[in-house]
């Protein structure tokens, strides 16, 4: 009973989100709801609006209309969003980018500790202790005093994951986290993500890694041309897609 209630809690809800760049509509009236602990994989051809939709969740892109709710914090599009609302919403959301985006002028340890100190007000000591724990967890404790440029792409991405996790987010967004990596190196990042999913983190992952989408996600969302084509259990979507466009896309990515 209690478990059911827990499962049904909504972590993220997008309601009729629209995003335009000039005349071009990138996201066309998309609604999506993600339950607490759910892992969602967003797949689809490039230019479908996958990344833009993800970036609307933490308001790196501000929608032109619609409503974004994360962990009970609403933001309505169309009205001026206050800095306070923005910070409150982002506090629950961690994000990992395709290009890692570590701060190159800081050591690995500073990269992870600085946001904790500035955003959560942790002391240097507390922050460093938490950073080291996370670095150990992603297998990179020995890199703490290095600069990011001395780390491989896969290591940098694991550091970026640690940096986001250090702020204790309830939701993690991944924007093609392995697309900039060699396939082999990508595996070490996917391993960390699998672990995170197994621990019950709510995750939204924009990805071209179909195997990961199949194995790890609870639900696959297929997007094309700014809209959701279909969504459902990965087993169903991958084996029996209902839409022609989905079938065409899956054929292209799976049968290469």
């Amino acid at each position: 009973m209690h478990e059911d209630a827990e499962q049904d809690r909504t972590a993220i809800s997008l309601e009729s989100v629209v995003k335009r760049y000039g005349d071009h509509t990138v996201i066309n009236d998309v609604s999506l709801s993600v339950r607490e602990g759910e892992v969602i994989a967003i797949i689809g051809p490039s230019g479908a609006g996958k990344s833009t939709l993800l970036r609307c969740i933490n308001l790196l892109e501000v929608p032109d209309s619609g409503r974004v709710t994360v962990e009970g914090n609403h933001v309505d599009a169309g009205i001026q969003i206050s800095h306070k609302d923005l910070v409150r919403l982002r506090r629950n959301v961690g994000m990992v980018f395709q290009s890692f985006n570590l701060f190159p002028h800081m050591t690995v340890l500073r990269n992870i500790s600085l946001p904790q100190e500035r955003v959560l007000g942790r002391s240097r000591q507390e922050a460093d202790a938490r950073s080291m724990k996370l670095l150990e967890r992603v297998g990179l404790a020995d890199k703490a005093q290095q600069y990011p440029s001395r780390c491989s792409g896969g290591q940098q991405q694991r550091i970026a994951i640690a940096r986001a996790l250090a702020l204790d987010p309830h939701v993690m967004l991944f924007d093609e986290p392995t697309s900039a990596l060699d396939p082999e190196v990508g595996l070490e990042v996917l391993a960390v993500m699998r672990e995170l999913a197994a621990e019950g983190m709510t995750m939204v992952v924009v990805t071209h890694e179909m195997q990961f989408a199949k194995d790890v996600s609870d639900r696959v969302v297929v997007m094309a041309e700014g809209a959701i084509l279909e969504e459902g259990d990965p087993a169903d979507v991958f084996t029996a897609p209902t839409m022609d466009r989905t079938r065409q896309f899956l054929r292209a990515v799976l049968e290469r």
Binding site: N58, L60, H83, V87, R90, R91, V93, G94, M95, F97, S99, N101, L102, F103, P104, P115, R118, V119, A160, R163, A164, L167
Partner: peptide
Amino acid sequence: VPNGEVEAAHALGMGRGD
């Protein structure tokens, strides 16, 4: 300074001044 780093800092919840 690469814009991606600024975006990452925003995503982490850091303020404009920080």
